[in-house]
Amino acid sequence: MLSYALFIALMLVTASVALSFWRLLRGPSLPDRILALDTLYINTIALLVLLGIHLSSALYFEVALLIAVMGFVGTVAACKYLLRGDIIE
């Protein structure tokens, strides 16, 4: 039962990666693209967690945590760039 749930969940999360990627390519403005990238990070975390359960390995959490940290810093830096035209002042 768990394997079926994992299968469906992996499909749904992959579909959402595809949707965010579509927004990333299409997004009319820069904030749209940054938002799509941010969503892509979060979707990747979801994929990694599912993969960790599927493989019964806790190793993937460090990766998920790193992606969360780097994704947040990246989003904030990109927003700062849009707001100020400069990242480090």
Binding site: I8, A9, L12, S20, R23, T39, I42, N43, A46
Partner: peptide, 16 residues
């Protein structure tokens, strides 16, 4: 797991 995946999907659907 299913609820989580469905919500993740809905979030990205909203984005698109």
């Amino acid at each position: 797991i299913l609820t989580g995946a469905i919500f993740t999907f809905i979030g990205s659907l909203g984005l698109a």
